[in-house]
Design a protein around this nucleic acid. Sequence first.
DNA 1: AATATATTTCAACGAGTGTTGAATACAAAA
DNA 2: TTTTGTATTCAACACTCGTTGAAATATATT
Lengths: 213, 213
Amino acid sequence: MARNAEATRERILDAAESLFAKRGFDGVTVRQIMGEAGADVALAYYHFKSKRDLFDAVLLRRVGTLNDLRLAALEQVEQRHADDQPSVEEIIAAFTEPLLQILEDDPDEWRDYMALIAQINNSPEWGGELMTRYFDPLVSRFLDALRKALPDCDEEDLFWSYHFLSGALTLTFAETGRLDNLSDGLCQSSDMEAAKARMARFIAAGFLALCKK
Amino acid sequence: MARNAEATRERILDAAESLFAKRGFDGVTVRQIMGEAGADVALAYYHFKSKRDLFDAVLLRRVGTLNDLRLAALEQVEQRHADDQPSVEEIIAAFTEPLLQILEDDPDEWRDYMALIAQINNSPEWGGELMTRYFDPLVSRFLDALRKALPDCDEEDLFWSYHFLSGALTLTFAETGRLDNLSDGLCQSSDMEAAKARMARFIAAGFLALCKK
DNA sequence: AATATATTTCAACGAGTGTTGAATACAAAA
DNA sequence: TTTTGTATTCAACACTCGTTGAAATATATT
């Protein structure tokens, strides 16, 4: 078995991730992907079996890493508060900061993937199904933690609060440059350090305003 | 001049809006649009001059209405507080609730357009440019109002807070059904009354947590 | 070295893409 | 009623799409 087959698969996935992130599933051609990957078109169908399956493979490749990081962060928070209750902000931070951190530490590796997730989350075609499939168990785990931190919280308030969190977080991943334009250069959409310094505080305050009894 | 030309234009715009909202610019064919509009393909190029220009026309058709509604809401808040300072929550509500309200009142007319905006806002390809072009003046006007309500607020905190607001609001417009899945039917992504009852409170608390000195 | 298997290349398939020019139907102006 | 200019239809253009079968090459096994 040719051992650089794995390397080829990765090159295809890299190229596909980059292009899908920039132009979406339908905005990209298999030929463009394979052009950027430096491989023959037919190889896309040999390693993955269709354009759609390649798209799914792009999503699957990194989702485990993200979920593991966030779960570890949550468990660390819970361990640190074995006796008392962790604050809402700490729980939110465990949900958001691993992603912002990995994006800050290794943007070249993660930027495209995050931008792709942002687009999917806001797509009527895929948002409901794909986000549910890939992130639901983790999200439910966090909602459980939040329920403990917010006793007597109304369930609908909790779900809508999560929805607002999800929107704020994914737009941050999209890195559209909108913030650069709006602030005339003062802020950068790509400045994950700035996002990290603010997001958990902002979102936690929202949760408390809606869910605190 | 055949006077139903205007009606044809509108039918094309309606069909284009609906399909672009569901599958994005590249996921839709001019032939599909004209099929749903019940008109010949060539008419798309007669009334609009390219697929891209049709897309822009779809966006332009309704943006004025939205901006007018929101500006009127803000002016009403400011008029109501001619002497004292309006609260942050009232300003945020003037930004968000006209859109949620129109979506609640006339979903068939507005749902697709809002979903389209949601996708554009999170698209690296178009988010930066198009959102800036269509919404910047209005957003700047709201940021001015918020600066008055939040004296000594750090500028970067203000822009990032707006960014989080924008993400939460547009994901709500996307109506992906994600919330339905996550909550096992308890909440509906399409329930704008529920969103309206919560969003301003949630977001205002976030602004205060970041920007209040 | 010979065989078997996994990977890569090449060339093409039918269908569909955005777009256009010329011909036709139509309403208003003369 | 004829003319005029707008609105609509029809048929096609050159090109690109996702996908595939068969041939060629590289690697692993015997």
